[in-house]
Amino acid sequence: MKKYFSVFKISFQQEFVYRLNFIMWRLRNVMQIFLVFFLWDTVFSDPKRVVFGYDREKILTYVFAILIVKAFVLSARAVDVAGDIARGDLTNYLLKPVSYFKYWFTRDISSKSLNLLFAAVEFSLLYLILKPPFFFQTNPLSLIAFVVSIAVAIFIFFTLLFIVSAVPFWAPGMGWGVHFLVTVIIVEFLSGSLFPINILPGNIYRFLLLTPFPYLIFFPIQVYLGNIEGFEFFRGLLTAVFWSVLLWFAMRAIWKKGLMAYQAWGR
């Protein structure tokens, strides 16, 4: 455990090395919030308008929540893993008595903590400036359920990312392409990080709920908003946990095969 605490510390330091880069990244986040806010604010300029069951307050809460949940779930250091394999840098880790998964999971958590810290500050400032009609959940049960669903979401995304990142074991040149397709396009689209997926036709929506993707963004937000609770929550959580376990074992099996194909290129 101590090992991974040290990894956590050194990753944290690493994040601060390029200060300007860091500031630009945070600025980009803030600009993004502004953009999304004004977009939906214009669409719902008539306070009585209801689209797909969402009124102005609900949609603004949803988009704000997207930004926060996304910053926490979809931001991951482990995007570097595919490159590590293709360049042969994986070698450095394989030579040491550390678990590669735990190593990257720690780096992810380190990166997410930093992200969350700054996101919280930015969010507070923006909230004071824009004064959006944000819905604050006060029911402790919903809040606990929200935290649990976020934890599961982080785990699902991590295993998904590791599975996708294993492609360069066999096709070193394909790492980035596959990663883009899966984590950027499929995940963004199906997880509900562009729009709430329950505005899709009922059949498609119900089908999507059987896949792991909505449990990354859509599900935690709905839990926060109190739209999903009780039995429905447990059913969702069970599906998500089921996917976590399945993806975990798939990841292990794929990596075992991948390491046998690994050729430690770069030399």
């Binding site: 330091q13 090395v17 390029y18």
Partner: peptide, 14 residues
């Protein structure tokens, strides 16, 4: 230990 003349394990920025 494996020491390779062209591989590095040091954290580049630190």
């Amino acid at each position: 230990s494996l020491v390779m003349g062209q591989k590095n394990q040091l954290w580049w920025d630190l």
